[in-house]
Design a protein around this nucleic acid. Structure first.
Length: 888
DNA sequence: CTTTTCACG
DNA sequence: ACGTACGTGAAAAGT
């Protein structure tokens, strides 16, 4: 067996951990006020790597101090760095303790950096026949990759890593690990503060090293390079380049005083870890460390409850509101799920049973249907639907742990009580995955004692977390968002889902057979063109046919091979007749599999489709729709649009009615930016994209906006909402990057309020760590501080886009909440069925349509008062396909 | 179980 | 100099 050596770059991982958890810094302090986020993150990473790699020998290297041989040779090395915050420096001693308690060696060497220790030991490991894994947050260490040494660099957070082998580097960067040093020499490193050669960045550096093989090779052949500014710079700065090469090169001969034999990994020292965790208040690590083996499974507190039977039902009547209810479903789709069991209690007494029929009997049914009895639970909408199926009208919902937690942080993706409770530091419960298992192995405990105790533990977690989360919502100014928007919305959504939309099977089936015919014709023709049969649905096989067999030029690569996406295929249309056939095949295959077969599979016995809206999923506050997704039924292309013919009213003589907000996101933009020109354009009530075109192309009042100008202005408007870049815009409208840049500049000149807003929102995200919508819906953006340009830019675009997209979501939600009462007040039978982000779809008796066309837009455009009017367009027709615009 | 592609706002 | 549009869900292939 090959021995395995683990080398960890302590400093860089601790830094990564610190900044990864920066936004939650305040949550991570022990009772003495010591910050612990970096220690915590470091331990997460450690556990992950140790479980994964299982080393025989291990060492964590740290930097010894500020001065090293590099600073002696180049005084500016790492100069100008911000001072490490004390919140971080105070954690280093504990990290070292943690390393030792985990059975690993911590090591540092005066005058050298952690990198050099690692480089030296990795080399020793290679020579001694070890398989070595280096873990760092710093890409520079990839230069140490060899056939037997892999370098894992943290990607996002601390537990996700990207593994660099020499082959992977060649593929990804185009250079070998050794060449990487020379690339750094040319491009420099701004964070380590050495310059490289003027005007040479990563791309140029890589192509130069690829061409000449090495830095030395480049200077040997510099005379042959054709005259250019770059050549001049290279000649003038030759000395700097070699200096930088010296700085970039990690030493493999540092005078380390440990040998591989000293580094044996001994595994964790339990007693030492317990002491340390206690000092740090690491409760979750403590419970993992000391499972209560005799009794409960890890983390599940002993709970007392009464197993409920028909005979003992009366005792439930003694419970005092507020009550906490948890119903366990057999599957996520609550339209079909069975009730596996439930727990009900008031914080003092708990009852639990596997028998769902008990819910439908007195006194439980009465308590649940009583609006004066406050109910706490997890996932209000699921409970509303499940209980409705049992004939119970749940009315008194007060606290929904899932919804409250989502508002506090929409990017947590826990969807069971246990996991979510852990996120809020409540640990006396197991997650479903821990108790039930996952995937195919998932199974509910057959033992009543274990299963019912878990359901009660869920109830207790909900009851316990309520006051805490309510206080947080109030502190965040999110209480109205919870009580006035999201909580009532649950009920409205439940009604829409239960109503369902009628879909005609026969219509879909008829379309399906037509599509099948066309598919087999196209298939034959494609095989003919290709000269052989293959799986057209396989991108891999298709890539081989197009680019290897037919010799077409690959336009783009994915990480697994050639890209064959529409964008690529469209560029190849003129090269070969097979391309158009593949495009047609793809389009039809998509309709057939996703929309014909897919929808047929989910039509219920009542001939309706009952989607589920996920109210706590998206990062922006939008809804999403699953089982099936009814928010992406085709509309843009006629062939796909025909699918909508199958969506029909549920009763004869009824029609489909739809109302959509016109340009909500841009109107929200006009509101939040306060931009006078953008607001004026909306107040004038003209075509907004044409108005934008007039401004950015400086048209005279009597000049006409040609369609191309309008198209470009529209793309600019979209770009602004998405967090614009010249590159992205250029790609979208097929102009040069320079032109795109000019469009954006022209836009900002005309709409200075928008430019200021973009600047301010990014600054505010940096300061506060989050952004907000008009209703104080919040999204944290930890990556706004990321060192990686990519991650940081992404966070900046998100900072810009989320308040816009999220506020638009707020607005339609407010309209939806008011809708049922408004319909009822007008004595209408109409029912709201679907929400598609900026559109609401209804069904109603034909004779109600004129009234509906009044009432619905009125509710929608008065949902929130903005600085510009909200405009609503309406349509009606016999099916979802046949909708025709109604006059204003 | 991840990757690629494509449907929607 | 850096490298891209924002937010979703479903199907199919392939590891």
């Amino acid at each position: 067996m090959t021995k395995k050596l683990l080398l960890i770059d302590g400093n860089s991982i601790v830094f990564r951990a610190f900044f990864a958890m920066h936004t939650q810094m305040d949550r991570f302090t022990n009772q003495a006020g010591l910050h612990t986020a970096a220690i915590y993150g470091f331990k997460l990473m450690l556990d992950h790597i140790l479980a994964d790699f299982q080393p025989d020998a291990a060492l964590v290297a740290f930097d010894a101090g500020k001065t090293t041989f590099r600073t002696e040779r180049y005084a500016e090395y790492k100069a100008g760095r911000n001072q490490t915050p004390t919140e971080l420096t105070e954690q280093f001693p504990y990290v070292r303790q943690l390393v030792k308690a985990s059975g690993m060696h911590a090591y540092e060497l005066p005058n050298y950096e952690a990198d050099d220790i690692i480089g030296t030991l990795a080399q020793a490991g290679d020579q001694a026949g070890y398989e070595t894994l280096i873990v760092s947050g710093d890409r520079d260490l990839t230069q140490l990759a060899t056939e037997h040494t892999t370098v894992a660099v943290t990607k996002k957070g601390v537990t996700q890593t990207e593994h660099f082998t020499p082959a992977y580097m060649l593929e990804k960067l185009g250079v070998t690990p050794t060449q990487f040093i020379d690339v750094k020499a040319l491009m420099g490193d701004s964070s380590d503060n050495y310059p490289g050669v003027t005007k040479i960045g990563e791309k140029t550096a890589i192509s130069l090293i690829q061409e000449y093989g090495s830095l030395i090779g480049l200077y040997e052949h510099i005379a042959e390079m054709k005259k250019s500014k770059r050549k001049e710079n290279l000649i003038n700065e030759k000395e700097i380049a070699f200096k930088c090469q010296d700085l970039a090169r990690i030493r493999r001969d540092a005078p380390v005083t440990v040998s591989l034999a000293d580094l044996t990994y001994t595994g964790p020292d339990h007693a030492a870890l317990v002491d340390l965790y206690q000092e740090l208040d690491f409760k979750s690590f403590l419970t993992k460390l000391a499972p209560d083996e005799a009794t409960a499974p890890t983390g599940e507190a002993a709970v007392t409850f009464t197993p409920l039977t028909a005979a003992s039902l009366a005792a439930v009547g003694q419970l005092k509101a507020p009550l906490t209810l948890h119903i366990e479903q057999s599957q996520a789709n609550y339209h079909l799920a069975k009730v596996e069991g439930f727990a009900l209690g008031d914080g003092q007494h708990w009852f639990a049973s596997r028998d769902a029929t008990l819910l439908t009997q007195a006194p439980i049914k009465g308590l649940l249907a009583d609006p004066k009895v406050a109910i706490n639970l997890f996932n209000a909408k699921a409970h509303l639907v499940l209980l409705n199926r049992l004939g119970i009208d749940l009315t008194g919902i007060d606290f929904d742990l899932l919804l409250a937690s989502y508002l506090l942080n929409p990017t947590l993706n826990a969807d069971d009580v246990g996991t979510l409770a852990h996120e809020h530091d409540y640990l006396a419960i197991l997650s479903d995955e821990e108790l039930y298992g996952k995937g195919a192995k998932r199974q509910l405990p057959t033992d009543d004692a274990v299963f019912l105790r878990h359901l009660v533990a869920k109830g207790q977690a909900i009851a316990k977390l309520q006051p805490q989360l309510v206080a947080k919502l109030k502190a965040n100014e999110q209480w109205p968002l919870y009580t006035q928007i999201e909580r009532p919305l649950s009920t409205v959504l439940a009604q829409m889902e239960m109503a369902g939309i009628k879909v005609e099977k026969a219509t879909l089936e008829a379309m399906g057979s037509q599509l099948s015919e066309r598919l087999s014709e196209l298939e034959t023709a494609i095989y003919q063109d290709a000269g052989e049969e293959f799986n057209i649905n396989s991108t891999k096989q298709l890539g081989t046919i197009l680019f290897d067999q037919l010799g077409l030029r690959p336009i783009k690569k994915t990480k697994t091979g050639y890209s064959t996406s529409v964008a690529v295929l469209e560029k190849l249309v003129d090269q070969h007749p097979i391309i158009n056939k593949i495009l047609a095949y793809r389009q039809i295959a998509k309709l057939q599999s996703t929309y014909i077969a897919g929808l047929l599979k989910v039509i219920h016995a009542d001939d309706k489709i009952h989607t589920r809206y996920l109210q706590t999923l998206t990062a922006t506050g939008r809804l999403s729709s699953v089982d099936p997704n009814l928010q992406n039924i085709p509309v843009r292309l006629e062939e796909g649009r025909k699918i909508r013919k199958a969506f029909v009213p549920s009763q004869p003589g009824w029609q489909i009615f739809s109302a959509d907000y016109s340009q909500v996101e841009l109107r929200v933009l006009a509101h939040v930016t306060g931009d006078a020109n953008l607001q004026a354009d909306f107040l004038a009530g003209e075509d907004i994209h044409a108005a934008t075109a007039r401004r950015i192309f400086h048209l005279l009042p009597d000049e006409e906006v040609d369609p191309n100008m309008r198209r470009q202005a529209k793309a600019v408007n979209f770009g602004i909402v998405y967090g614009i870049s010249d590159f992205g815009l250029a790609q979208n409208i097929h102009v040069t990057r320079k032109q795109a840049h000019e469009f954006i500049q022209a836009y900002f000149a005309e709409f200075p309020g928008v430019e200021k807003y973009i600047h301010d929102i990014v600054a505010s995200a940096r300061e506060q760590g989050y952004v907000e919508t008009l209703t104080h819906r919040r999204r944290y953006l930890p990556d706004i501080h990321a060192k990686s340009f990519n991650l940081r830019s992404f966070a900046e675009r998100t900072a810009m886009n989320t308040p816009i997209q999220g506020s638009a979501a707020d607005i339609i939600k407010m309209a939806m909440i008011k809708m049922p009462a408004a319909l009822q007040a007008h004595g209408l039978q109409a029912r709201m069925l679907l929400q598609i982000h900026d559109e609401l779809v209804f069904e109603a008796p034909a004779e109600e349509i004129p009234q509906l066309a009044q009432v619905v837009p009125e509710v929608m455009d008065s949902a929130m008062q903005l600085a510009v009017p909200l405009k609503v367009e309406k349509k009606a027709g016999a099916t979802w396909y046949d909708l025709k615009k109604l006059p204003d």
